[in-house]
């Protein structure tokens, strides 16, 4: 029993490795059921596409390379949905690393849907300042981001011709790997200017954001790879999040089995009066 309690961690690592690798090689089809928080984002994009089709959507990228496996699938699925509905999209970055990660995805998906740069979408790059950037965006778009990443003045971009500040966007979405939603966008953006706001974040952050869902400061939320997979199911696209759900499911089961095993061994040892 003691040997089981002090099992070599490399054995656990091997099980986790197999739990990830085998489902990637063998197709195990598991149905994905979208949760209400994810469906709310989908419904909001559908709503603004019908009720407010002229004003552009602002997407903010606040993530870095380490969280890319979780954040990239949701970036793709949200942009896919927006472009498929013909929405004009303006992208900004509040994390410096996000420029190199988000811009290629935006360009790729825009090309797939025949969107024209400057008219249908624009990418304004990164500005330092965190919440100060959001505060400035609430006052002046061109004052905060005077140029796009190619050096074009934003005044020359038709997509931003009627945009003065945050109030002129029909919907704002933040891809967050840090605290940008609760400490930057909600207090200095959404709460001041009252625009429809939703976000996508890493799985570990999602529980922190539930109070903002109930207060409706967040319309909806995509949490981690599971949130992205649910969104892919809603838009009918099977991407990397959907294929990632099978290894994640098996790995979760393996971890649960190990926890149950650990508890069984612990209580058996304790009942026998052993050291646990």
């Amino acid at each position: 029993m003691d040997r089981l309690l002090n099992i070599d961690r490399r054995i656990i690592f091997i099980f986790v490795l197999l739990g990830v690798a085998i489902p990637l090689l063998i197709d195990i089809h598991l149905p994905i059921k979208p949760t209400p928080t994810v469906r709310a984002v989908y419904d909001e994009i559908e709503r603004v596409s019908i009720e407010d089709p002229d004003r552009p959507v602002l997407v903010s990228f606040s993530y870095g390379a380490s969280t890319m496996p979780e954040m990239e699938p949701m970036t793709r699925s949200i942009l896919h949905h927006l472009f498929s509905r013909g929405r004009k999209v303006v992208g900004i970055c509040l994390w410096p690393e996000a420029v190199g990660l988000a811009q290629p995805i935006m360009d790729e998906l825009a090309a797939e849907f025949g969107m024209k740069y400057g008219t249908d979408y624009a990418f304004l790059g990164y500005k330092p300042g965190a919440q100060a950037v959001v505060l400035n965006l609430g006052q002046s778009m061109a004052g905060t981001f005077p140029f796009d990443t190619a050096g074009t003045p934003v005044g020359d971009l038709p997509i931003l011709a009627k945009v003065q500040n945050l109030k002129d966007f029909s919907f704002v979405f933040d891809f967050a790997a840090g605290d940008s939603m609760e400490f930057w966008w909600i207090p200095y953006g959404q709460e001041k200017h009252r625009f429809p706001f939703a976000g996508g974040c890493t799985a570990v952050m999602a529980p922190d954001l539930y109070p903002f869902l109930q207060s409706r400061q967040l319309v909806g939320l995509l949490g981690g790879l599971a949130g992205a997979a649910e969104y892919e199911a809603l838009i009918g696209v099977s991407g990397s999040a959907t294929s990632g759900m099978e290894p994640q499911s098996v790995t979760h089961v393996i971890i649960i089995l190990f926890i149950l095993l650990g508890n069984t061994v612990y209580f058996t040892t304790r009942r026998r009066g052993g050291k646990a």
Binding site: I7, R9, I12, F13, F15, V16, L17, V20, G64, A65, S66, T67, M68, P69, G100, L101, T251, I254, I255, F258, I259, L261, G262, N263, Y266, F267
Partner: peptide, 25 residues
């Protein structure tokens, strides 16, 4: 990007081991 994502992904292995050892009722 590749090394950062790898470092973050390795957490799954350490969390599994830590959960087995410490998550007791």
């Amino acid at each position: 990007v590749a090394s950062s994502a790898t470092m973050f992904s390795m957490l799954a292995f350490f969390i599994s081991s830590a959960a087995y050892r410490t998550f007791r009722a």
